[in-house]
Nucleic acid binder design. Structure first.
Lengths: 241, 241
DNA sequence: CGAGAGCTTGAGTTATGTCAATTCGTGTGG
DNA sequence: CCACACGAATTGACATAACTCAAGCTCTCG
């Protein structure tokens, strides 16, 4: 069985896609969204653990996550890596590395996933008659910059418990936008991945989950989380020292 | 005296600008660069310590740094802040926050500086007849994403000495592109700012400078640095543990 | 020349990492 | 269906990198 498989394109139209309201077309008027329908010519299924793309590969497309979850990471020469983002359905992957036509990070599926392929040159074509598409792309890139600055803030100026609290709040918010419960969810990533992302060891992450649970902030069992005291979590992040 | 002053626009043409080769027009053919000459209608001088813009202000332009140096930072409710970038001449500021038309960070001059103002709507106008301008903007935004991911890597997975080494290497490289010596330069930021940026305290940064000097990697006096052993610095970053 | 900001250095504390042992959970094969 | 095996998570004891607090130094600028 292949690891990275094109799938039928029958319903690959932005105008009819369930994710439209949280994906690339967010906020565009419906008559313009229809004009995006030529944009996605291909969809790809990626198996859990397999790469959507690898750092250094040639880049000619963006990917809209339709289903599943994907992490991006910088791979270092010494075999280490730093996770730079966890992506949920509706989010766009591959925005870095539009530089010299080469991906500057790797993207790996955390569960069986499916992405819409949006080729860069098609973006240019379509935006000739849908100028607002340019705005959308800029908006999304800008959002990615702002997002990574937020992570920077966490890694640069928060203590471990604040980082994890911020992480949980962030997951909660993004999942609730997708229509899931904001208090009750399953994390798609393991402790090690959380630790790597937050610049902490797996043991520290584990201890923090236990402590949060003991203090009544959350209930946690493996990857299932229930947030019991969102107010306290927010206070933890907002009021340091 | 005003803190943020428009200056004469006499030579504000990208085609004749000294910074052209490292700024927005990088890599564009000269006949297209000429078409950018309508893009910059205004230049602004910002005094040392003064903001070019503040987090939350309305955004309608990007800024190309012409002269001086500027830092960007996220301001937190509690008065703290996290520096997210140090910018040198030729670099573009204001790429985050193209989201909801609001700056998501503040930009503050670290010395008397001067920026070219590029209004967003002018970008859209001009790119109608200079399509490659879109590519440039995407390229620059992409680069900013990749850059912040690199910082993320530093904060997430490097020890203090590696972070400082990476910082020095990065400064060295960027300055040499600007035509300055890559081994001998003056840092525009103080110890506190370096510490904030790298997620370290001022004392740790100071001790690291002393240690690097003692070990013969650099010579340092206040903000003047001379890199003596670039190889060792690179090894420090590349080969952890 | 004096004052203040910025930097350095030392001594002691602490948050987080490291190492190691144990438990839990899930999937596999007998 | 059970038992085993393996990876993931937890927990404890200990080590240490980095922080905090504090004192003193050194530029710079007025």
């Amino acid at each position: 069985m292949q690891k990275r498989v094109p799938v039928g394109i029958e319903s690959a139209h932005c105008s009819t896609c369930m994710m439209g309201h949280v994906c690339l077309p967010t906020g565009m008027p419906s008559h313009e969204i229809e004009q995006l329908d030529t944009l996605v010519k291909e969809r790809i299924r990626v198996e859990k653990g397999q790469p959507l793309f690898r750092q250094g590969e040639t880049l000619n497309a963006l990917f809209g996550l339709r289903l599943g979850s994907i992490k991006t990471q910088l791979d270092e020469a010494n075999g280490q890596h730093q996770i730079t983002g966890f992506f949920l359905p509706g989010e766009i992957i591959g925005l870095d590395g539009m530089i010299e036509g080469e991906h500057s990070s790797s993207a790996i599926a955390m569960e069986d996933s499916e992405v819409c392929v949006v080729r860069i040159e098609d973006i240019d074509d379509v935006s000739r008659y849908v100028p607002s598409l340019q705005h959308q792309v800029r908006r999304i890139m800008s959002k990615e910059i702002a997002r990574s600055h937020q992570v920077l803030l966490a890694l640069g100026s928060m203590r471990s418990e604040q980082r994890l609290a911020a992480f949980l709040i962030n997951m909660s918010q993004r999942l609730s936008v997708l229509g899931y419960s904001s208090t009750d969810f399953v994390m798609r990533m393991g402790r090690e991945e959380i630790g790597n992302y937050l610049g902490l060891t797996i043991e520290t992450v584990s201890r923090l989950f236990s402590r949060f649970a003991r203090d009544g902030l959350i209930r946690v069992s493996q990857r299932e989380v229930r947030i019991l005291d969102m107010v306290a979590l927010n206070e933890l992040v907002g009021k340091p020292c």
